[in-house]
Simulated scan of single mutants.
Amino acid sequence: MRGMDATSMDMMTTPAALVDLDRVDANLKRVATYTRQHGLRWRPHTKTHKTPELAALQLAAGAQGVTVATVREAEVMAAVCDDVLLAYPPVGAERLVRLMRLPPQVRLTVALDSGEALELLSREARRAGRTVGVLVELDLGMRRVGVQSPEDAVALALAVTYSSGLEYRGITFYAGHLRIPQAELGPAMREQAARLATYVEALTAAGLRPSTVSGGSTPTLWRSHEVTGLTEIRPGINIFNDRNSVSIGACAWNECAYSVLATVVSTSVPGQAVIDAGSKALAKEDGFTDTGVYGALLDLPDILVRGLSEEHGLLDLSSTAWRPRVGDRVRVVPNHACASVNLHDRLHLLRQGTWAGTHAITARGW
């Protein structure tokens, strides 16, 4: 492999998750510049890396808080950040009890979309003697979670204001359904802005104008300023980027900071090579713009991973003259970095192409 310290990499057991810190730095600098230019708060979603050291880099680059999806992520990130948003319905006794045990200095906010979740959260907050912020979650087209009308949002926000232990802090949404090329995003972003405006207007008329309007994603990151009223964004993948992000123009290939180091273990079948990174290392997710492809080689992006079983990845060599040998090592950029990271227990760090240590993926699983 070009640009890597041969001694360190040759000793590494594969498959192994690699992070190029120089690219991470550049990715963080880019989003920090963008958010400053457009007056947006930056609250990155740590589900991508699940690593407190990388959250600390995001905070040092200008992030004002972090987003988490699990209680375990909240517990881990609380060690480096005192402003945490749980962007997941806080339902379940164990989840709530553990949330209330976060250090008292942590400004905790949760997203919810139901009276049932609100009542449970209020009860546990009272028991713990702490105040928990609430963002009312809206469905602006994702069709996953979120209240379905401005009237529902007003009713739930009012219920929050009357619930002890809770503080109404605004609204949140996730437009994860917008996974299309950047050049085609314009109409979708305008529709998102128009739908959001109906919620903000209804809440404002009810005396509940949201101080926080939280949204954003990596696919829509660079168009976030087109959504009038948005106050903060929560991109996750952009710290690493991945093949999906490249496929829709959300980043360039040379901005992909995450890859999986793999070893070629077989070349017996004509037209392909087999690597030791399968679905348990790369994650078996189709791409945004194609199916049956699960990644591509970092140094040779035209060479695709066209088949995955648990421990085998199949490199399609049918359109290239490149022929690897058994024992050669390659780096694969997966379709979805978040899903791949969660399959590993540590990140191996590179700085200027040289091995620079490891970080445990402390918040994985659980």
Rank of each mutant, 00 (worst) to 15 (best):
P219Y: 12
D276G: 09
A69L: 08
R195I: 07
G207H: 07
G278R: 13
Q182H: 10
R144Y: 05
M142D: 14
W253G: 01
R107Q: 15
H177R: 11
W366H: 15
R30P: 05
Q105H: 15
G65P: 01
P187T: 12
V274W: 07
A363Q: 03
L304Y: 01
T33G: 10
T358H: 05
A206F: 03
L304N: 07
N27F: 00
D152Q: 11
S8R: 15
V200Y: 03
S8E: 15
A111H: 15
Y162W: 13
T172W: 06
E201A: 08
P181D: 01
D302T: 14
F240T: 11
W355S: 09
E73L: 00
A321V: 11
I303M: 00
Y88L: 09
V91M: 13
A125D: 03
A281M: 03
G141H: 10
T218D: 09
M12L: 15
T354F: 05
M4I: 09
A16D: 05
A296R: 01
V145A: 14
P15R: 12
V246I: 04
P90T: 02
E94A: 10
T231S: 12
V110E: 04
R72N: 10
E311S: 03
L99P: 00
Q37K: 15
A6G: 08
R127Y: 04
R98S: 01
R190L: 14
T362C: 11
G287D: 01
L120F: 08
G170N: 10
D139G: 07
A205P: 04
R123N: 00
T35N: 02
V80N: 01
L102D: 08
G313C: 09
G207W: 02
L40W: 00
S279P: 01
Y88A: 11
G3W: 13
H38K: 14
D345Y: 06
T172R: 08
G62H: 00
A262S: 13
G39F: 13
Y174D: 11
A339H: 07
G141E: 06
Y294M: 03
G313H: 05
R72S: 04
L208M: 12
L86A: 02
L343V: 02
M11E: 13
C251I: 00
L118C: 12
V31C: 07
P270E: 03
P103Y: 01
A206E: 02
E201M: 09
A153E: 13
G115E: 07
I237R: 08
Q105K: 14
G62C: 09
V332G: 02
D139F: 00
R30W: 08
G3T: 05
H225C: 10
L57T: 06
L121T: 02
P301Y: 01
D83Q: 10
A125W: 08
A360N: 05
A183E: 15
R2F: 07
G365M: 05
A321L: 12
S245D: 04
T70H: 07
P301W: 02
P15C: 03
D82W: 09
P210C: 01
G295N: 06
R331D: 00
N238F: 06
C338L: 15
V341K: 04
Q64K: 08
S122K: 11
G186V: 14
A69F: 12
M11C: 05
E226D: 04
S8N: 08
